[in-house]
Design a protein around this nucleic acid. Structure first.
Length: 270
DNA sequence: AAGAATTCCAACCGCCATTCG
DNA sequence: TCGAATGGCGGTTGGAATTCT
């Protein structure tokens, strides 16, 4: 078959999303989840293709997204992970809670790559430095990343930040390609979204508090965060504890990765 | 003050992987 | 087992915002 076009060009809107569209999408996902992206826009009454809705949700509307500038620690983490993983933005995003692959990709192309290049032009000056600067450590990022050394067993889990239907259990969403997901977020997203309901007076006011309140971002610890949010804690704990006797899920790899990157995996207390 | 150049990022495109009937 | 449908990913782009001249 010929591949179906991403959007039926006929009658479907493109370009920037309006606040009204955002609100419709948020309200719909809050109430019904997003079992089928293709069908969602029609059901929600949006003149968008499903792909556009999914991108808008995952890259912008998802309640667990951390807005704002990247901290130095985050940037450093990106550089280090990029050095190890290459342009696997979703994998990198999976290690930076609250950040999307798109965002990380943008930051890489707009800031970090330039910064690394700049530092590469004057590497000698820094060689005597006893402390390894963040830029210097990542000079090698410009060369071929050690992507091939990654174990085959590792699967991407970027979608682990994808929100889920409020009616669906976390187990339903930990299947498939995400089965190895360690930082798999369950219905925490929609749980917090639950406070943000249609009956609320300010439901259609997406202000800063929406992001901060809904997120409980403080539950995340950077850099190289392994720490769970409050609601996915159980899952992470069980992942880690089961890993202590069973390494099949690849946790060891990620622990090694963090150690190599000079990062401190944050373990939950239990 | 204004036009040009540059930066930044949201959104799109197209391909690949996975799921499902 | 196969093909269609769908989801996900990385690369790219358009245009708004910002900075420079």
């Amino acid at each position: 078959m010929g591949r179906a076009p991403c959007c039926e060009k006929m009658g479907l809107k493109r370009g920037p999303w309006t606040p009204e569209e955002d609100q419709v999408l948020i309200a719909f996902i809050q109430n019904y989840g997003h079992g089928n992206w293709r069908a969602l826009p029609k059901q929600a009454g949006l003149l968008r293709c499903g792909k556009s809705c999914r991108l808008r949700w995952t890259n912008y509307l998802r309640p667990d997204i951390k807005r704002g500038n990247f901290s130095n620690e985050e940037e450093e983490t990106i550089i280090k992970l990029h050095e190890m993983l290459g342009n696997r933005w979703s994998a990198i995003a999976g290690r930076l809670p609250g950040r999307t692959d798109n965002e990380i990709k943008n930051v890489w192309h707009t800031h970090l790559k330039k910064r690394l290049k700049k530092n590469q032009t004057t590497p000698e000056k820094k060689q005597n430095s006893t402390e390894t600067s963040k830029c210097e450590t990542s000079n090698s990022s410009l060369s071929e990343p050690a992507i091939n050394s990654q174990p085959q067993s590792i699967t991407e889990n970027s979608s682990s930040y994808d929100s889920v239907s409020p009616q669906q259990s976390s187990s339903e969403f930990s299947s498939g390609a995400d089965s190895s997901s360690v930082i798999s977020v369950d219905n925490h997203d929609m749980g917090t979204m639950g406070e943000y309901n249609e009956s609320s007076d300010n439901f259609f006011d997406i202000d800063e508090s929406f992001w901060t309140d809904a997120l409980a971002v403080e539950n995340f610890n950077m850099p190289g965060d392994f720490s769970p949010s409050a609601s996915n804690e159980t899952q992470v704990q069980s992942s880690i504890s089961s890993n202590s006797s069973n390494n099949d899920d690849g946790m060891d790899f990620w622990f090694d990765l963090f150690i190599q990157a000079g990062m401190q995996p944050v373990l939950p207390e239990f």
